[in-house]
Write a protein that binds this DNA or RNA. Structure first.
Lengths: 329, 329
DNA sequence: TTGTACGCGTTATCAG
DNA sequence: CTGATAACGCGTACAA
């Protein structure tokens, strides 16, 4: 503990505390001596004591709502990538990362880790169906940021891709390839997906293509339902020459469903995914998709949250999506 | 804080503390009264104060070594699945989960979070190339468990699949399908993979098939290298009719490489993966693979660690792998 | 620039 | 079964 180091260095505990905290109230010489002794003895400040004293945990909670999708949602490669990047960004800032999956029915889940002082702030990956809960928490002043869509008049800071533009780009690309019967696959209740769907509709309207309700499938993030719904659709005899999927996972599943139904991708049907996860380049055929910049997004999330914690103002931000053309269109 | 609740309940702080901790030293009646008041006022024990007093953080660190594979390793669906299940298992036990990615060059990384009292114990996902470091830490009494291979005379507790058997099953399956020129793809420096490779060799030997060194590719977990190496192999004109991959990710990559080289899967070459991640059923063709039981594995990891923390003895355990036959063989 | 003294919010010990 | 008290290890206001 600190008193040992103080004794070894022949100074008081306060001096050790200040030296280790990099206080400017201390001479560079003593600071270096103390730091060296601490290192040699493998001493590290007790985080519990520090937290108790300072009222801060030096920890960021990462929350993953699972309301509208159980495991699938999490194991989607997109979440994994985001989480990996968040872990790096948080650790790089010297903070610890508390991971929490929010199961259904947990009340006040956003503020719970903060109120109980286990974390100073939270990062929420994906709005899921929780926009209202999040907005209320923001009004109450809970410090958190969200990866997801920016909704009209929301009170919290969100970082995310311009989903409307992403959906529009994906659809326009198919239209340019001469497709006219384009399906949309995704759970529009999730705001990000809802935006992508709006972009899809806009692109169709811009090209005077009638949007057919039968081609718009309400599919949860999981791949199982995508496979089934699309197979059913094809079997029903509806004509179809393009698919805009709300995630790469859904797109991969769609490719399989189409292929097994006797349709060729991309010859008969073009498929566009969303996310550009690592796996997207290894499917057969490699996936044309809308890339979300995950690494910069993660850094942005952490920095915005730290700004909020520091009392600075922070704005929501939308990142530009990018069409990555591979072989599925 | 606790004194507020004490005042409201008309009892001492000690009583509140005991009531909330479920101590048997307290009458059921007062306990219920105190608990109710605490709930009504949204009171939760301050974890920093509790940790300071008890010397326990009530937190489990999950460490992900990246020594022999950077992002790929983590974003492999297997890691994501494992992490999701660990998060659930840890939270279910009332513990918090601290996530840490171990970058190269971090010394004493296993014990760091424990020594600094941020976590009571650690779960390490994958041995990577860290077996020696882990073993030394175990000898020093650091409380942790590992997902990975059980190595001869190791001093730490490990949970994992019987990788030798898994590799053997995969290879035998291909042999039964009449394959004789079977390649192995994976980074054998990672102990899990080394075991799978041994199983592969054993299966070949049992069937009197000569193991060809040219067919054994040293491939990191990432998919990029798998794609390139296998394409090169095929181009070199070596005959080949089967592939045992060290992960589903590698297998998917292999299927693409083979297909693009003009070989048909499974007609010309059978491919077996490892893990049975969710995505494995959605590839084209759906992947025959060796299933690892991730969810039970995660629960086992947490429970073994908690046993160790409770001072109880804990044994390593190997889970039986299972061949899941789909369309790639 | 350094040291002294106190309190952060709990829980364990001991006395009743 | 309950209450008073001390101590967990640190950071900071205040004094020097």
């Amino acid at each position: 503990m600190m008193s040992d180091i103080a004794a070894l260095a022949g100074v008081s505990e306060s001096t050790v505390s200040r030296a280790l905290a990099g206080s400017s109230l201390i001479s560079e010489k003593t600071r270096q001596r103390v730091v060296k002794i601490a290192q040699r003895h493998g001493y590290a400040v007790n985080p519990a004591a520090r937290s108790l004293r300072r009222g801060l945990s030096h920890t960021i909670a990462v929350m993953i709502p699972l309301r509208h999708a159980h495991n699938q949602h999490f194991s989607d490669a997109f979440f994994a990538d985001m989480l990996a990047n968040l872990a790096d960004a948080v650790n790089a800032r010297g903070y610890d990362l508390l991971l929490h999956r929010v199961s259904e029915g947990e009340a006040n889940w956003v503020e719970q880790p903060i109120q109980s002082r286990r974390a100073d702030g939270a990062i929420v990956i994906g709005q899921s169906l929780e926009h209202k809960a999040l907005d209320q928490a923001a009004v109450r002043g809970v410090p958190f940021v969200v990866w997801g869509a920016r909704l009209p008049e929301q009170h919290y800071v969100s970082i995310g891709t311009d989903n409307f533009l992403g959906g529009k780009l994906a659809t326009e690309h198919l239209i340019q390839r001469g497709r006219k019967r384009i399906a949309f696959l995704g759970d529009r209740r999730a705001p990000e997906v809802g935006e992508r769907h709006r972009g899809y509709l806009k692109a169709l309207a811009d090209s005077d293509i009638r949007a057919d309700r039968k081609l718009q499938l309400e599919i949860p993030f999981g791949a199982d339902e995508a496979l089934r719904s699309l197979s059913d659709l094809v079997r029903s005899g509806v004509s179809l020459d393009g698919v805009v999927a709300a995630s790469d996972t859904i797109a991969m599943s769609a490719i399989r469903a189409l292929t097994e139904s006797g349709l060729k991708v991309p010859a008969d049907v073009g498929v566009v995914g969303f996310d550009d996860v690592a796996m997207a380049s290894y499917t057969l055929p490699p996936l044309t998709t809308i890339r979300q910049e995950i690494a910069p997004g993660a850094v942005l999330l952490v920095d915005k949250l730290l700004a909020i914690l520091a009392g600075e103002p922070a704005q929501s931000q939308q990142m530009k999506p990018k069409l990555v053309v591979r072989a599925s269109t």
